[in-house]
Design a protein around this nucleic acid. Structure first.
Lengths: 233, 233
DNA sequence: TGTGACAAATAAGTCTGACTTTTTGATTCC
DNA sequence: GGAATCAAAAAGTCAGACTTATTTGTCACA
């Protein structure tokens, strides 16, 4: 599940990216390419490539005669999957998880509405299969299997919406769900009400009932928000 | 309004980025770093930096002995502001504008609800000022002034929500609104109903009426969607 | 004393060329 | 025909020299 790994510059990013997103260097801090190259024991060319990537994520800004300046968090490309992973691995994980869950609560109901209008027969089948999979793994400490089908379910909804901006949030939702299962406190078995809601959403989409699909999905995401409130008020 | 401009590699990206996002090279196409370096008359180091940036946007994938492979659109980081600008400048602009407007319709109502709960006094003032500015420029072909305050209004809503994921969509909304004003057909004066709605949202936020702020904002975004349907059905 | 021009220092930016590593696909041998 | 081997291709890496822009500081001049 390592993020980059591709090449030496990826190795550098794997430690420098998390450091920056964790706030190790306060905004305005200046790093020097040469020093970084020394620290990571790579050539300047490799270090420059890494800096270019960080720059494209708006984590840093490189200026002549000044150096590589760390930008304030409000500038970061927080939708970059890499940045999301780095931040989820860091200390302000709970805050991040909350932001993303709020985003989910805005997007997924609308996506479900669109999915009900646009889903193909195949996507309806995948949805039903995922919902049934969730049911099958909802009891007896089978959290891994449950997570698998949960992720699949929400991915199908987002993809079937037909909106590419929604579809690309599939990875984000997957990270959030995985994070909830693995790192945070979670009950040994998922909430039965949530499981039922997923099944009902699948039914609504299959029945082309957009209104109902949206309302039920809103219940799901509101449940996810309440769950966060209980764990970290 | 030029996007990158910083350094030689930025110059390369300014032409290569739009080419790729426009679909000039079909997914799976293979580019060679050396050839690209020749074409743009830059050194391999510079070309490699540009490729790294494209790679971090998931537009291409670089593999040894193969070359730089163009990835299918479903892999692209479509939330990267740079990618958004490149695509909005390209041929499938209308499609892109629709995707982003649907995203707005999902996000902004929820953001308005949160803004009503969390906005500071200063943000309330900014919101009112923006709404009044829209009113002042709503008649007499003052589209530029209207756009300015419209952008400001939606930026404040998204920022005041207190959710950083929402806040970062300010630039996206700005692009969408600017695109609508400049490139697409638009009536010489904005819809009076929309202007009124903005004023009412500002009032609702000031009055801490979250429910009403959400409902009114939903009306605004649904209006934006209908406007798109009229222009490009 | 203030100000403007000029010079020096600094760190990123660029280029070149040689070398390494990985991957692929073709060839050969069993 | 299949497996092992080898050669070519392209990205990856490195070192070093050089360029350029920007900042800072100094000095002369008003």
């Amino acid at each position: 599940m390592s993020t980059t790994g591709r090449g030496l510059h990826g190795r550098v990013l794997d430690t420098l990216g998390p450091e920056i997103t964790a706030g190790t260097y306060p905004p305005g801090s200046v790093l020097r390419t040469d020093e970084l190259a020394q620290r990571f024991d790579v050539s300047r060319s490799v270090m420059r490539e890494a800096v270019r990537v960080l720059e494209s994520m708006h984590l840093v800004e490189s200026r002549r005669r000044v150096g590589v300046t760390v930008l304030p968090a409000c500038e970061w490309n927080v939708y970059d999957p890499q940045v999301i992973r780095w931040r989820l691995a860091g200390a302000d994980r709970p805050r991040q998880l909350r932001s993303l869950t709020v985003l989910r609560s805005a997007v997924e109901p609308v996506a479900a509405r669109l999915a009900a209008e646009n889903a193909t027969a195949e996507q309806c089948a995948e949805l039903t299969e995922a919902a049934l999979g969730m049911v099958a793994h909802s009891r007896g400490h089978k959290l891994e299997g449950y997570l698998f089908h949960d992720v699949a379910f929400h991915r199908v909804i987002l993809t079937a919406s037909g909106n590419e901006m929604f579809a690309r949030l599939g990875d984000v939702v997957a990270e959030v769900l995985a994070g909830r299962t693995h790192h945070d406190v979670m009950f040994p078995d998922p909430d039965p009400a949530a499981v039922t809601l997923h099944v009902q959403v699948a039914e609504a989409v299959r029945a082309r009932d957009a209104e109902r699909a949206e309302r039920l999905t809103r219940e799901i995401t509101e449940g996810a928000l309440q769950e966060l409130d209980i764990l970290a008020p």
